[in-house]
Computed example of a mutant assay.
Amino acid sequence: MLAAAIVIITAALVFYTAGVWSERLQRTLRWWHAGAFGLGLACDATGTFLMSRIADARDATGEHAVSVLDRVMAISGGLALLLMAVHLVWAIVVLVRNRPRERAQFHRFSIVVWVIWLVPYIAGAAAAMSGTA
């Protein structure tokens, strides 16, 4: 299950990064960007669910003690998922309203959410590399 979670969360990184940075480079929000945000959110939520199942199994066996890094990942991961959902909804609102100025400035919000999302991603990667995940 760990390998599947890693692949799915990495897919979230690919989709979300592609959506955010292509929106930034194209200088306007497009529907396919919202689609990439949605795919990134779906992958991240699925990967997070799988990771929580793995953590629950380890906690039940006493195999894994909760570390500070685990807490950072849990808190920042929950915040990141919430922000990704808000980001997707707001992108849809902006696209439906179709105001050129909003579509051109949306990338500012996207970059902030993307940077916040990187915190749990990097923390998880660090935990996996250090053997604490």
Results as ranks from 00 to 15, higher is better:
residue 17 T to W: 07
residue 37 F to W: 11
residue 49 F to R: 14
residue 130 S to G: 10
residue 42 A to T: 13
residue 47 G to L: 09
residue 104 A to K: 03
residue 15 F to A: 15
residue 60 A to V: 06
residue 2 L to G: 15
residue 119 V to S: 04
residue 114 W to P: 05
residue 90 W to A: 11
residue 9 I to M: 14
residue 53 R to Y: 05
residue 34 A to E: 07
residue 34 A to V: 13
residue 34 A to T: 12
residue 2 L to W: 11
residue 13 L to Q: 12
residue 5 A to S: 15
residue 77 G to M: 04
residue 57 A to C: 04
residue 70 D to N: 12
residue 30 R to Y: 05
residue 119 V to K: 06
residue 48 T to P: 10
residue 49 F to H: 14
residue 33 H to C: 01
residue 62 G to E: 04
residue 5 A to K: 10
residue 28 T to I: 01
residue 28 T to W: 00
residue 88 L to P: 07
residue 111 I to W: 08
residue 99 R to I: 00
residue 125 A to I: 07
residue 17 T to I: 09
residue 50 L to H: 07
residue 120 P to R: 12
residue 42 A to I: 14
residue 13 L to S: 12
residue 9 I to P: 00
residue 125 A to R: 09
residue 8 I to Y: 09
residue 109 F to L: 15
residue 4 A to G: 03
residue 94 V to E: 00
residue 121 Y to A: 12
residue 22 S to T: 15
residue 31 W to C: 00
residue 112 V to P: 01
residue 79 L to K: 02
residue 117 W to H: 06
residue 60 A to D: 12
residue 12 A to M: 08
residue 45 A to R: 13
residue 110 S to W: 08
residue 122 I to M: 11
residue 68 V to M: 07
residue 30 R to G: 02
residue 84 M to R: 12
residue 35 G to K: 09
residue 36 A to R: 10
residue 37 F to Y: 15
residue 34 A to Y: 11
residue 64 H to D: 00
residue 106 F to L: 03
residue 65 A to C: 00
residue 86 V to Q: 02
residue 9 I to N: 15
residue 69 L to F: 08
residue 111 I to T: 12
residue 13 L to N: 07
residue 19 G to E: 06
residue 33 H to D: 01
residue 124 G to Y: 07
residue 117 W to P: 00
residue 72 V to H: 06
residue 56 D to C: 00
residue 10 T to W: 04
residue 106 F to E: 02
residue 98 N to M: 01
residue 52 S to L: 14
residue 45 A to D: 04
residue 55 A to N: 13
residue 87 H to C: 01
residue 36 A to K: 09
residue 93 V to K: 00
residue 38 G to C: 07
residue 111 I to H: 10
residue 53 R to L: 14
residue 34 A to D: 06
residue 127 A to W: 02
residue 77 G to F: 03
residue 41 L to T: 13
residue 56 D to I: 02
residue 86 V to G: 01
residue 102 E to W: 05
residue 45 A to N: 06
residue 116 I to H: 07
residue 50 L to M: 15
residue 16 Y to E: 13
residue 68 V to R: 11
residue 77 G to R: 08
residue 116 I to F: 05
residue 127 A to D: 11
residue 24 R to L: 14
residue 22 S to P: 03
residue 76 S to E: 05
residue 133 A to D: 02
residue 6 I to G: 05
residue 47 G to P: 11
residue 116 I to M: 05
residue 81 L to K: 11
residue 39 L to G: 15
residue 129 M to C: 00
residue 77 G to D: 04
residue 30 R to V: 02
residue 125 A to S: 08
residue 103 R to Q: 13
residue 24 R to I: 01
residue 24 R to M: 11
residue 115 V to N: 04
residue 133 A to C: 01
residue 80 A to H: 08
residue 26 Q to I: 02
residue 7 V to S: 08
residue 122 I to Q: 02
residue 23 E to L: 09
residue 76 S to K: 04
residue 114 W to N: 09
residue 26 Q to Y: 03
residue 112 V to K: 03
residue 11 A to C: 13
residue 101 R to K: 12
residue 86 V to H: 01
residue 27 R to A: 12
residue 108 R to D: 02
residue 131 G to H: 08
residue 9 I to L: 15
residue 121 Y to D: 00
residue 47 G to N: 12
residue 108 R to S: 02
